[in-house]
């Protein structure tokens, strides 16, 4: 399954897919997309790297990748941003919007060209959910790959 054509195409294509996934995550409050969709795109780039390589190389490549830690970081970050809302009113209140902090700009009313420095907590939640989704989907496929390739390694 891992011919030279597939390996070369993957090496060219995977960075582009990863950049596109990051773009969808970061612009989740402006354009179609968001944390879930961008995380799925990012994970599909990593999955392309997984399925186009042989087992030993995949194991060496993903041994140092902290997928479990990234997933826990996503969940804890979501909870932390939610608790930040308790400063003003309630859980998950948009406390950063219009505060001048990073991503805390003021959104103009009506149709506008879209400014990246707006969104408040929504941008942070997008980033954390994207981290969580990409770690989760990649680790699901990685588990299947490592376990099912163990017996028929002659492919």
């Amino acid at each position: 399954m891992t011919t030279t054509i597939i390996k070369t195409t993957t090496r060219l294509l995977a960075p582009l897919i990863l950049v596109f996934g990051s773009y969808i995550i970061l612009h989740g409050h402006l354009t179609p997309g968001g944390g879930f969709q961008g995380g799925a795109v990012f994970a599909s780039g990593l999955i392309l790297l997984i399925v186009a390589n042989v087992r030993d190389k995949v194991q060496k490549l993903f041994e140092k990748t902290p997928l479990t830690q990234l997933e826990s970081l996503g969940a804890l970050g979501f909870l932390g941003i939610g608790l930040l809302g308790l400063m003003s009113y309630t859980f998950l209140k948009n406390a950063i919007a219009n505060s001048g902090f990073l991503f805390g700009g003021t959104t103009p009313q009506g149709i506008n060209p879209g400014y990246l420095n707006t969104g408040g907590t929504l941008s942070y939640l997008n980033i954390f959910v994207g981290t969580k989704v990409l770690a989760g989907l990649t680790s699901i496929v990685l588990i299947f790959f490592l376990i099912l390739r163990r017996e028929r390694d002659e492919w």
Partner: peptide, 13 residues
């Protein structure tokens, strides 16, 4: 239209 205000056409409101 799609419920997104970024560069939407004028008649989408």
């Amino acid at each position: 239209y799609a419920p997104i205000y970024t560069q939407a056409p004028q008649e989408a409101v």
